[in-house]
Design a protein around this nucleic acid. Structure first.
Lengths: 226, 226
DNA sequence: CCACAACGAGAGCAGTGCTCTTGCAATCTT
DNA sequence: AAGATTGCAAGAGCACTGCTCTCGTTGTGG
């Protein structure tokens, strides 16, 4: 049955090869990468690429899902290797930052401004939440272990909206901690994007990692994790 | 001498008109707006636009500077009308968010992923720092009034890098507060971008403003401002 | 063995940023 | 006021883009 697999195998390899070259082009062209340029690099006609991806957006979607999974993998592995919840927290944050620094255009693709005219399909929402869920799981573990300090209750309607959404993942987590998880995740994204997109242009050159950890310790502290 | 002003006046109006139409196109096309489409909307040849902006990037730069100034104005005015430092802080944050919600593509232009191939010229750095400087000034004022709580000293080389940069703006502000100002600014950007770019897609629908204020109060609290 | 589906290549369409040339109107100089 | 100069708008054109269609070819399942 090797003959039966030939086409499928070649197709899979070709798909991966296209994505690899597209990732390379992402570095220079950003979100508006040129399908023709990718095809040219592969020595094939541009129309042939459409046998593998129905449109440029579909190729972008594949890259986006891969990126979400890559940063999710990195963060989860780093967290798994750390002993305490706070260590897991910091390890996950650093892993996300390290991945972003190693793959800037892909970070921009998933956490930067949305590509104009591109509508993210449903396939992307699950991988997109992995890092957030990891932070939440870390906080939930710490909460079960009594490591999350109590703080003032939150006021406002957003807590009532947030709890039912989080209930399926962390049934026993108070609304305040859920809100802090989401806030911390946004802070993580903000810190990495700011560094990556040049917001702290010349203010900190050397110890950017230290400043990042300062911020993430602040986020953990704000959530009550010590 | 009205004749002498005619050309200059028409040119200024035309420049403003081009930017206005370009801003409108920004909403649909994002950063890769079409100069030809802008020209078409204005009823002129695409080549004529090049009399006003040497390239698409130069037009983008003009829009970026305008956007920085607009959000800076909004935040400064809001802060000026507030009594206490914490009120100023929250007012500035809400003003920035309100502006972003009213002008999403322009927010994406300045705080989203950088436009591929676009190198921000030097003209943009001063207006880009206005909101950050406003947060710093608010904290500095609170610090002079003894309203900033003392916290643990920061460790790491980033403090030594940060202080000389901040010294020209806030001579008497401790390194810890400077670091918290920068962190808070990143948190502000992260919170707005996350909301705007769809990160909290379906988790909070109604009280997004409340959740934003929750985050910004957290940032202020983290900086020691109560 | 053969029908069929998958595939690659090429031409073609409408659109893009940008340049160059051409003609015209406004401004400055004498 | 006449002439020189400059600013401006328009059009053609180049190289590029995403995408579609058609046409041979080649691997695959019945």
């Amino acid at each position: 049955m090797s003959a039966a697999n030939l086409r499928a195998r070649v197709r899979a390899e070709m798909t991966e090869e296209i994505k690899r070259v597209a990732r390379r082009h992402l570095a220079t062209d950003g979100a508006n990468l040129s399908l023709r340029a990718v095809a040219r690099d592969l020595g094939m006609a541009s129309s042939a690429v459409y046998r593998y991806f129905a449109s440029r957006d579909e190729l972008l979607t594949a890259l986006i899902i891969d990126a979400y999974d890559a940063v999710g993998d990195a963060a989860e592995q780093a967290a798994a290797a750390a002993p305490t919840p706070l260590d897991k927290w910091l390890a996950a944050c650093h892993a996300a930052r390290d991945w972003a620094l190693a793959n800037p255009p892909e970070w921009a693709l998933i956490y930067g401004s949305p590509v104009p005219g591109y509508q993210a399909p449903q396939d992307t929402v699950v991988p997109a939440t992995r890092v957030l869920l990891l932070l939440g799981a870390t906080l939930a573990e710490a909460h079960r272990g009594g490591l999350v300090a109590e703080r003032s209750l939150i006021t406002g309607g957003f807590a009532d909206e947030l709890v039912p959404v989080a209930a399926s993942f962390y049934p026993d987590l108070p609304a305040r901690v859920v809100a802090d998880t989401l806030a911390a995740f946004f802070q993580l994204c903000g810190a990495i994007s700011a560094e990556l997109f040049g917001q702290l242009n010349k203010s900190i050159e050397q110890d950017r990692r230290g400043f990042f950890e300062f911020q993430m310790r602040g986020a953990a502290n704000q959530a009550g994790l010590t």
